[in-house]
Simulated scan of single mutants.
Amino acid sequence: MAATQFLDTAQGRRLAYHKTEGDGPCIVFLGGLKSDMEGTKAVHLEAWAQAQGRAFLRFDYSGHGESLGRFEEGCIGDWHEDVLAALDALTDGPLVVVGSSMGGWQALLLARARPERIAGMVTIAAAPDFTEDGWWAGFDAVQRETLEREGQVELPSDYMEPYIVTRRMIEDGRKRLVLREPLRLPFPVRCLQGTADTAVSTQTALRLLEHAECGDMRLLLVKDADHRFSDGPCLGLIEQAVLDVLG
């Protein structure tokens, strides 16, 4: 496997990445919260792209994986800046963006910032606005008081160690919401969602489908698939969705 490379951004962050040269549009994988570019979906999709001679980019947000920084100090806006920095510096021309979980939110933020760059989008258990509609909405009075008093609160996760949710994460997330105002997606979009996902509900997927302004958007619900969406059949569905938006 090729050695990890690093990009220094204008915000003073150092991002780890792997880039494969090949035919465009370049396929870019945006990972989930606390995930990294060595995850099953990212590595599988890279190998698939390489076998087809397609350009591919995977990278770690700051505070994730091999990139520098502490996760607890980051927020949605910081990772949005990381996405823009990586794509502006490391890619040219059209992109097919594949966003998983929080990476789905990042993909939608990218669509606002660089719509002219995107040739197609695939989301996997996309989690737009989860800091507000998932975390904040689900906090009880004690958790909200703890967040205000101590600046952070700990939440359990079904998939990894507990999350440390900071007040900055909540407050910054409110500036990045995408389901409250028009969301134009002027390119093909394919959304994949497992019905056994305990982190992102099918209602979130349906809300995104109904809210977005898109002339070619489809949602595929996969019975009994969980949030990881990384077994053999699910990986095959991701490949097919990428091919679909490539046309």
Rank of each mutant, 00 (worst) to 15 (best):
P115F: 07
R117A: 13
R117D: 05
A119M: 00
M121S: 03
M121Q: 11
V122G: 06
T123A: 02
T123S: 13
T123H: 08
T123F: 03
I124S: 10
I124F: 07
A125E: 08
A125R: 05
A125T: 08
A126R: 00
A126F: 06
A126Q: 02
A127V: 04
P128D: 02
D129K: 09
D129A: 05
F130E: 07
T131K: 00
T131V: 05
E132N: 09
E132A: 15
D133A: 12
D133M: 00
D133E: 15
D133L: 11
W135K: 04
W136F: 13
W136K: 08
A137I: 06
A137K: 15
A137D: 11
A137C: 06
G138D: 00
G138A: 05
F139P: 05
F139G: 05
F139T: 07
F139L: 14
F139N: 06
D140L: 11
D140R: 09
V142A: 14
Q143T: 12
Q143R: 14
Q143W: 00
R144I: 02
T146A: 10
T146R: 14
L147E: 12
L147S: 06
L147Q: 04
E148A: 14
R149A: 15
R149Q: 15
E150L: 14
G151E: 04
G151A: 05
Q152L: 12
Q152K: 10
Q152E: 13
Q152P: 00
V153K: 06
V153F: 10
E154T: 13
E154W: 09
E154Q: 14
E154K: 03
L155G: 00
P156N: 08
P156M: 09
P156H: 07
P156C: 05
S157L: 07
S157F: 03
M160T: 13
M160G: 10
M160N: 14
M160W: 14
E161L: 15
E161W: 11
P162A: 13
P162Y: 13
P162R: 10
I164N: 07
I164Y: 04
V165I: 15
R168P: 04
M169L: 15
M169Y: 12
M169G: 02
I170L: 07
D172Y: 02
D172K: 09
G173V: 11
R174D: 05
R176N: 13
L177E: 09
L177P: 00
L177Y: 00
L177G: 03
V178Q: 03
V178P: 09
V178R: 07
V178G: 04
L179N: 03
R180W: 04
E181T: 14
E181C: 02
L183R: 03
L183T: 01
L183K: 08
P186K: 01
P186F: 02
P186C: 12
P186H: 04
P186N: 12
F187S: 01
P188Q: 02
P188A: 09
V189A: 00
R190G: 02
R190T: 07
C191Q: 15
Q193C: 02
Q193M: 04
G194W: 10
T195P: 08
T195L: 11
T195D: 01
T198M: 11
T198Y: 06
T198R: 14
A199C: 08
S201T: 15
